[in-house]
């Protein structure tokens, strides 16, 4: 009480204890009223949620990249519990996490190998331009102008639509074309849908080499347009000891189930358009 009376020196006038009491009572009353209301409403409006949803969400990667097609990891967890989504749609959750989710939901988890993305083009500055492009810097807008500024119909324009789309900062544009850093890529697939040329492809993480060109043009046309484009000579197909490379529509396709990473194709390619995945580590 003595301490409270000392308060007078701060306030500068005698404390009106009635007003003080009313103020405290009003604040406490309002707080109590609001507390009771919140309690009542939370009882009335309780939403029953499957407890497994929270458990599954705890096992997911939690990056909220949206590549699975559901609104964030919580949306994906809900779809998993409902049985409307497949666990394979997420490329980021660890194998351990997927096994735990399988245990929670009582489903078998497929042993699919994780993938990473590569850009199937290495033209860039080596590939001729049809016209000089200046202005709004986006691949999608360039694509609208006569199919992009590159002479090659399947040439990376290097304007970085994929760079903007990547939530993991894995893509960089240098030497005139996009490179996916295999150490950062989580294969979410957002760049695949962002690229107007559809140049970004998925390969298994164990893959050492990839074909860095996807032009379907004849060798003569490629020769005149690009210094590093595939001319469909078929040398890689002949060199491969495991019969893993085949030309389809003038593009070499590697069958990674047969590839032993012997590097014969990479060493033999006259145009240097079969590349090491590890070359793109920034």
């Amino acid at each position: 009480m003595i301490m409270l009376n000392n308060l007078m020196f701060f306030v500068g006038k005698p404390i009106n204890w009635t007003t003080f009491g009313i103020a405290v009572a009003i604040i406490c009353g309002v707080a109590l009223l609001m507390g009771v209301c919140i309690m009542l409403i939370s009882k009335l409006c309780a939403v029953e949620e499957d407890p497994r949803i929270a458990e599954v969400e705890g096992c997911l990667a939690g990056a909220n990249c949206g590549a699975c097609g559901f609104p964030g990891c919580s949306g994906f967890a809900k779809a998993l519990v409902d049985g409307t989504a497949s666990l394979d749609a997420c490329g980021l959750t660890s194998a351990q996490g997927k096994i735990e989710i399988g245990n929670i939901l009582g489903i078998a988890v497929g042993g699919t190998e994780p993938t990473i993305c590569v850009v199937a083009c290495n033209g860039g500055n080596n590939c001729a331009d049809k016209y000089a492009y200046q202005g709004y810097g986006d691949c999608a807008s360039q694509e609208l102008l006569a199919g992009g500024r590159k002479v090659c119909q399947a040439g990376c324009m290097g304007s970085g639509s994929c760079v903007d789309a990547c939530p993991y900062l894995a893509i960089e544009c240098y030497e005139g074309y996009a490179h996916v850093d295999p150490e950062r890529c989580r294969s979410c697939g957002l760049c695949i849908s962002a690229c107007p040329k559809k140049l970004i492809k998925r390969v298994p993480v164990s893959a050492k080499v990839y074909v860095a060109c996807s032009t379907e043009c004849r060798g003569k046309d490629v020769m005149s347009a690009c210094k590093t484009g595939c001319i469909a000579c078929g040398k890689c197909q002949r060199l491969c000891p495991n019969d893993a490379i085949h030309l389809v529509n003038n593009v070499p396709i590697i069958d990674y189930s047969k590839c032993t990473s012997c590097m014969k194709c990479l060493e033999g390619c006259p145009r240097h358009c079969i590349k090491l995945v590890a070359d793109n580590i920034s």
């Binding site: 209301c37 919140i38 409403i41 939370s42 409006c45």
Partner: peptide, 12 residues
Amino acid sequence: ALVQMLEMILKK
């Protein structure tokens, strides 16, 4: 308190 209540009502 109101926003808390509004949130619960909306959720329901």
